[in-house]
Computed example of a mutant assay.
Amino acid sequence: MSEASIDTLPGIGPVTQGWLSEAGIHTVGELRAIGAVEAYRRLRFMLPRRVSLNALYALEAALRGCHWLDLPQTVKAALQQEAKAIEEAFRRGGVTRCAL
C-alpha cells in the first residue's frame, strides 16, 4: 500500500485533501484500498451540500492518473449510477437489521 500523501495525486487540491483527511483517508494507498466510490460516499455523508458528482469523477480520475474530463463516457456513466444509488440510500435512511 502506498504511503504517499493524497495530495500527490493529480487533481486533488487542498480542499479535497482536507475532506478526505476528515473521512480518515490520508494516503494514496488508503484511497486505493477503499476506492473512489466509497470515498465519495463518505464525503457525501459528511458534507452533503458541498460534495458533488464532480468530486466522484475527480477521485476516480486521480486514481487513474488523469483529469476527470478525460474519463471515458462509460466510466462516467457507471459512476453516475453509483452516485444515484448512494443518493437513494441516503434518502431511505438507515436500514436496521432487527425489529424495533
Rank of each mutant, 00 (worst) to 15 (best):
Glu87Ser: 14
Leu56Asp: 01
Thr96Asn: 10
Ile6Gln: 07
Lys84Asn: 03
Arg41Cys: 06
Thr27Ser: 15
Ala62Trp: 10
Pro14Ala: 15
Gly13Lys: 09
His26Arg: 15
Leu79Arg: 10
Arg50Thr: 08
Cys66Gln: 13
Lys76Ala: 03
Asn54Leu: 08
Cys66Pro: 02
Thr96Ser: 09
Leu9Pro: 00
Val28Ala: 06
Leu31Tyr: 05
Cys66Ala: 04
Trp19Arg: 11
Pro72Arg: 07
Arg64Leu: 15
Gly35Trp: 01
Pro14Gln: 13
Asn54Pro: 01
Lys84Gly: 01
His26Gly: 04
Val28Asn: 00
Asp7Ser: 15
Phe45Thr: 09
Gln17His: 11
Ala62His: 02
Cys98Val: 14
Pro48Met: 04
Leu69Met: 06
Leu56Cys: 03
Leu31Cys: 03
Val28Ile: 11
Ala36Pro: 01
Ile86Val: 15
Gly94Asp: 02
Ala99Tyr: 12
Arg92Cys: 14
Leu79Met: 10
Gln73Thr: 15
Ser2Leu: 11
Asn54Trp: 00
Ala78His: 14
Glu38Met: 04
Thr27Asp: 07
Trp19Ser: 09
Tyr40Gln: 06
Leu69Val: 11
Pro72Ser: 09
Cys98Ser: 15
Gly93Trp: 11
Arg91Pro: 01
Ile86Trp: 08
Ala89Ile: 00
Ser52Lys: 11
Arg97Ala: 12
Ser21Val: 08
Asp7Ile: 15
Tyr40Ser: 12
Ala83Tyr: 06
Phe45Asn: 05
Ile34Trp: 03
